[in-house]
């Protein structure tokens, strides 16, 4: 099989009979994908692009309206623009924290400790449970009378301070706004984009870091198995202590998987939906509105109470989001490609 394909002479002449057979067999194995996924996906994307330039409500034929949807999306400061600002805070917070937490967990669970397997299994637990179940549990933890406030109250009590309970899932105050408040100032609502992520948004971020960190921990654990022990031996012969070995051996060796985790984490973070749908529906004051939540709402007519289906508008927002994700991924891929062939 391989012999003829490797011959450069045969290549130049076009396909030999053998190569043709191999190609046909290959295509046959690929047929489930070629038949539907490839054609369907490409077709679907073309259709999406088309309706993003139209006004379309599913029941009447699409009406071409040029760039109106895109223009509307990019000027809607209470909708799409706001969701982009929110998702920006979310991505730049969640991705670094979940990556760091995943690495930390993996390093600890990679040590030879009693019950290593047991610990790995337990920590991975939240990854196999649904976002909805986790949200349902955190919903009660985050109540004004809930456990989180209770804990803060106890901790503050230790230092003789008072903790005023926060309604975690219904508090639109932004991070920078709180800092400004602490110095006696405020940030007016027309400068909402300077207020930073709201308390509610940060509460959701924390919850999601909690659930996704162990998912990525597994990837780090797998990658740690691949670090050749000889490298550590060499490092210790050169007189490196544990910390130096970590910075100069472990971290560089984990670079490919780190970048993979960052890329997958970013793609996932941009599309956060379940928790918003379950816990806040975009509120309070639109501070947890996300692009996917908006797209879902507009496409199925679940926004604004009027149940108006705006497929064209939803599609335009989806494309803008895809472009943003694509740009982010491209930037990250430039780093990935320097140093990884295996992924």
């Amino acid at each position: 099989m391989a012999a003829s394909a490797k011959s450069p002479v045969a290549r130049k002449r076009g396909l030999t009979a053998r190569e043709r057979d191999e190609a046909i067999t290959g295509y046959l194995f690929l047929s489930p994908y070629l038949l539907v996924t490839a054609i369907f996906t490409v077709g679907i994307i073309a259709f999406a692009l088309y309706i993003s330039f139209t006004s379309y409500n599913l029941f009447q034929a699409p009406q071409f309206n040029g760039l109106e949807n895109y223009q509307k999306a990019l000027t809607d400061t209470n909708g799409f623009i706001r969701s982009l600002v929110n998702i920006f805070w979310y991505v730049i917070t969640v991705v670094p924290f979940q990556t760091a937490a995943a690495l930390m967990l993996a390093l600890i669970l990679n040590r030879k400790i009693r019950g290593q397997q047991f610990f790995r299994t337990i920590f991975y637990g939240p990854s196999v449970t649904s976002s909805i179940v986790i949200s349902a549990i955190f919903l009660w933890l985050y109540l004004k009378t809930g456990y989180v406030n209770f804990m803060f109250d106890r901790i503050f009590g230790l230092f003789g301070a008072d903790w005023s309970a926060i309604e975690w899932l219904n508090d639109p105050r932004g991070l920078f706004q709180l800092i400004a408040n602490a110095f006696g100032g405020d940030i007016p609502s027309n400068l909402w984009y300077l207020r930073g992520p709201s308390i509610t948004w940060m509460a959701i971020m924390f919850m999601n870091i909690f659930t996704t960190a162990p998912t990525f921990m597994i990837m780090y654990l797998a990658a740690l198995q691949d670090v050749p022990p000889t490298l550590y031996e060499a490092a210790s012969i050169d007189g490196a202590d544990g910390r130096q070995a970590f910075w100069n051996v472990t971290l560089p060796m984990l670079r490919p998987v780190t970048l993979l985790i960052v890329v997958l984490g970013t793609i996932g973070a941009f599309q956060v939906f379940d928790q918003v749908q379950f816990l806040t529906a975009g509120g309070p004051l639109n501070t947890t509105l996300t692009p996917v939540y908006l797209i879902y709402g507009e496409a199925l007519g679940r926004i604004g109470g009027g149940s108006i289906i705006r497929m064209g508008y939803a599609s335009a927002m989806a494309f803008l989001l895809a472009i943003i994700i694509f740009i982010f991924t491209l930037i990250q891929r430039r780093y990935i490609e320097s140093g990884t062939e295996q992924y």
């Binding site: 994908y33 996924t37 994307i45 379309y56 599913l58 497929m311 939803a314 599609s315 895809a322 994700i325």
Partner: peptide, 19 residues
């Protein structure tokens, strides 16, 4: 193309697929 579908947000295909 196949790998591209991993990066592609499901939200992009949601609208036309649903339609």
């Amino acid at each position: 193309v196949l790998m591209g579908t991993i990066i592609l947000p499901p939200a992009v295909t949601l609208v036309p697929t649903y339609a």
